[in-house]
Simulated scan of single mutants.
Amino acid sequence: MPKSRTSSLTRRGFVAAGGALGLVAALAACGGTDSAKGDGGKDKGSAASGPWTFTDDVTKKEVSLKAKPKNIVAFTGTAAALYDYGVPVKGVFGPTRTADGKPDVQAGSMDISKVEILGNVYDEFNVEKYAALQPDLLVTNTWDGKYWYVPEASKDKILKLAPAAAIGVGGDATLDKGLQRTAELAKALGADLNSKTVVDAKARFEAASAKLREATKANPGVKVLAGSGADALFYVSTPDTSADLKYFKSLGVEFVTPEKLDEGGFFESLSWENAGKYKADVVLLDNRTGTLQPDALKAKATWAELPAVKAGQVTPRVTEPIYSYDRCAQILEDLTKAVQNAKKVS
């Protein structure tokens, strides 16, 4: 998924480098029902009458609290997903606000003026502000068995203040599994998964998945390259590691598979002189704030020479999806259009 500043960066460094320009992510939402759900979305009894439990995908152990947590702090993208379910958070960390003060793409629909921003870039997390929020629960994603955007240097201090519950979006996880786990967490935190909004969103996602599968069958042989641009390097992601690309591949999307992956196993970094190493009909381009977008990439001669670029077949990749059904349905719908309209140019 994410990319890096140097060729030796691991996926964590790469992802971090790709999404790093926000300050505050806000979560003003309606809140959900009072029912407490248990691990994996299973009912463990009412929040008012019994403990709250949920399994953390990092430790694989059950987090147990005396009652449903109220003061929640979350990674921006995870907070944005909870927001879509009507679950509010007190604070956020991760790309939230861009340099011009606007919400980062990872903030989704959140009102970023209404949450405490503990850090807006990778390795930034204000522990004092976090403690002042009196957190009951820290929520984030996990790509590699670590808590995403929780700095290693201050991790122990942070995790002593409140238990953590992470949702797996790397390793064996696929997009649909990440969505399911996020929905289970939202339910445990009070969201009503039987509401018309949620039911309709899930139906939209399932329909979008079916349409993408149909598109790949109707236009076979279209090669897609998942790439990310930085000043010195062009990153080509493998479809076999990230949850979104694995899911697209399962629906029939044919990806370029890089031959020599960097440490971490998520991508191959190429110098711009070698950016044309792999030929593709469509470039799925990392849309995160910290990465180069098409206008900036025009200055790279080898970018302009890529067959897909010359053909105008470049489409944004939401490299770190917000795991709510409507958001991910839109991703699938956009990719479907790109596959449907693609001409063979490689």
Rank of each mutant, 00 (worst) to 15 (best):
S4P: 13
R5D: 14
L9W: 15
F14Q: 15
V15Q: 13
A17T: 13
A28D: 07
A29C: 09
G32R: 05
A36P: 01
G38A: 12
G40N: 08
S46E: 05
A48R: 06
F54C: 02
T59K: 00
K68G: 03
I72P: 01
F75D: 13
L82K: 11
L82Y: 12
V87L: 00
G91M: 00
V92L: 06
T96Y: 05
T96A: 15
T98Y: 08
V105H: 08
A107L: 12
S109E: 10
V121Y: 08
F125D: 04
Q134R: 15
D136V: 12
V139K: 01
T140N: 13
N141D: 11
N141F: 14
G145H: 09
L159P: 00
K160Y: 07
K160G: 10
K160A: 15
A162P: 08
A164M: 00
G178M: 00
Q180F: 08
E184P: 08
D192E: 10
K211Y: 06
A215R: 02
T216C: 14
T216M: 12
A218S: 14
K223N: 04
G227N: 07
G229C: 03
G229F: 01
L233I: 09
L233Y: 11
S237E: 11
P239Q: 09
T241E: 10
D244S: 11
K246V: 02
F255G: 00
E259R: 14
L261T: 05
F267I: 01
E268I: 09
A275I: 03
K277P: 01
A280E: 04
D281P: 07
V283H: 04
G290R: 05
D295C: 00
A296Q: 12
K298Y: 01
A299C: 03
A311T: 11
P316W: 00
E320K: 10
Y323C: 08
C328A: 11
Q330N: 13
V339F: 11
A342F: 05
K344E: 07
K344Y: 03
